[in-house]
Amino acid sequence: MEIPRERLRWIYERMALIRAFEDRVAQEFAAGKLPGFVHLYAGEEAIAVGVCAHLTDRDYITSTHRGHGHCIAKGVDVKAMMAELFGKATGVCKGKGGSMHIADVDKGMLGANGIVGGGPPIACGAGLMAKTLGTDQVAVCFFGDGAAEQGTTHEAMNLAAIWKLPVVFVCENNLYAESTPWTYHCAAPDIASRAAAYDMPGVLVDGTDVFAVYEAAGEAIARARRGEGPTLLECRAFRYYGHFQGDAVSYRTPEEEAAYRQRDPIQRFRQTVLSQGLLSEDELDAIDAAVQHEINEAVRFAEASPLPPPEDCLTDVYVSYPAEQLAFRH
């Protein structure tokens, strides 16, 4: 599949930005600057970017607890994201969501989700909106191999199929649901083949190869836009960090991790575009430098931003509700 040069640059820039964001978040978290739980996406960049390359701001995605990569691929402002992770008033969710619920509906990003399997029904709803109003919007539902075992995922795939909704289900199989290997928790030899149960195409994709993801997602999204219904993609990749920051990752061996680093999605992209003369080394290095600068700026912005005033706890619960009934009693 021919990819225009500008889009190739965008793909590299987004993957590099995700990687740099996550590596920096790991550092800042270790330094004790971030409250709460953090789940990092490094290693899986090719999936979010390869898929979102086909989407506009008007298209929707639902995400997972590991949602930073999806945000960045969907174009959410990195400064506002970093500020959100720091719990600052300038955060994209005003410090009310944090890493696990980071969202930006203006960019079509319907939220990271603290509930495994929380997103698939919501993606169906976005697809239902498009179908009802007769628009050409699509919804992409990212979910993990863990969520593949949730009833909501199966119910949602069935619903999308019977209603022919413009939804693409993207299973990011990173091989472990928390510490439990997918070969244990999944009865089937792969997740993609479950598509057969819902009479939709199911495609197994190398999730470390952004070109493969781009091609498969392009087909699935085009099919959805044509009104031909949902597709299930299973993209296999590897998360470099643990399930959450603080996970000692005792369930993986160093050899296993080293083998996956050999297939690093960003390095693979570099090798491909350089060997085929699609982009130059200088170009890629310049993108890397710009990305580093952007991340440094984002952290500076987040650190310099104020915490939300405590009383902001009471706002944004409802569009309208008696204020005195939101407050604590005494």
Binding site: Y60, T62, V105, L110, G118, P120, P121, I122, A123, C124, G125, A126, G127, L128, M129, A130, T132, L133, A139, G151, T152, E155, A156, N158, L159
Partner: peptide, 16 residues
């Protein structure tokens, strides 16, 4: 119920 109540949430947040 989980799928269609959730779909109602998704539809509501996107304009229905």
């Amino acid at each position: 119920e989980a799928a269609f109540i959730g779909a109602a949430v998704g539809a509501a947040v996107t304009g229905l």
